[in-house]
Nucleic acid binder design. Structure first.
Length: 269
DNA sequence: AGCTCATGGCGAG
DNA sequence: TCGCCCTGAGCTG
């Protein structure tokens, strides 16, 4: 489930559970074992999240940089931690809690400078207070690339993934194939604000819900539905099903090696 | 038991 | 644009 909201939630959860505490750090799977040994017994003294990147800080040892990629998952739980299975790349344990990381694209010990460099190549993140949507607008407004591709480009906006992309375009009635330079300033400003609100709710609930109350199935006189990824959405993974608003068949296509979903009626050029 | 697919991203060409 | 890396769930047989 890793889009930006997942990472910010993980940062929050790690801070609450382990922040300011000595922690046991290990790598049952082995690929992070050397670094884990360096950190074992130290105090976790800071966390940060930017887009889909998570950073766990240790005094004088820099940061553990985690990127979940497509498959990475965290399992958080209360002590006693279960016997670690051989796919746990990173286990952190302390107090009454443990955290197991499996399948990440990145789990590496990095310096302050390396952390800064990662931040510098990322666009503004709707979940970071003070991040500036103008930086994204500068890219978008000059680009012939489709809005759908721009939204997934982490150098343009950090933290948006395939679900938020599809859903925010639907909520603003924007054809995913429109070029960035054909987007109006007001449209981008509205999408940015909406992303910030949706993703904050995503952090709170630890899932993605994008359907407005008045469009929920019950309000529309339909039975409640359970979506595959666990939230209420308009178009994501709803290929060939009727649009909740207009009944038109939701379309799907490949775009930059990812599945795109949209309603051709509600989202017109 | 084996296949396919998934909310990512990187480097080679 | 393609192939590749990471893991697990949900099929199929």
């Amino acid at each position: 489930m890793p889009e930006g909201h997942t990472i910010h939630r993980l940062a929050q959860d790690h801070l609450e559970r382990f922040g300011g505490r000595e922690v046991r750090v290990s790598s049952p799977q082995g690929r992070f074992a050397e670094s884990a040994a360096l950190l074992d017994g130290l105090v976790l003294d800071g966390v940060d999240a930017h887009g889909k990147h998570l950073f766990l800080g240790f005094p004088d040892h820099g940061w553990v940089h985690v990127h979940l990629g497509l498959f990475g998952k965290y399992a958080l739980g209360t002590a006693p931690a279960p016997p670690p299975t051989d796919t746990v790349r990173l286990r952190i344990a302390g107090g009454d809690h443990y955290s197991d990381l499996r399948g990440p694209t990145a789990c590496e010990l990095i310096t302050d400078g390396e952390k800064l460099a990662i931040g510098e190549r990322l666009g503004p993140d709707p979940l970071r207070n003070g991040d500036d949507p103008d930086r994204a607008w500068n890219r978008i407004s000059r680009s012939r690339t489709t809005v759908a591709a721009l939204l997934m480009d982490q150098k343009v906006v950090a933290g948006v993934g395939n679900v938020y992309r599809a859903e925010v375009l639907f909520r603003h009635g924007i054809d995913p194939y429109r070029q960035g330079r054909d987007l109006a300033r007001a449209e981008w400003d509205a999408m940015w604000l909406d992303l910030a609100a949706l993703m904050r709710e995503g952090v709170r609930n630890n899932r993605i819900d994008t359907v407005r109350d008045e469009h929920l199935p019950e309000a529309m006189g339909r039975p409640p539905r359970v979506d595959d990824h666990g939230g209420e959405v308009y178009v994501y993974r709803r290929a060939h099903l009727p649009c909740h608003i207009c009944g038109t068949e939701i379309r799907t296509a490949d775009l930059a090696a990812r599945n795109l979903f949209w309603c051709p009626e509600c989202q017109r050029r």
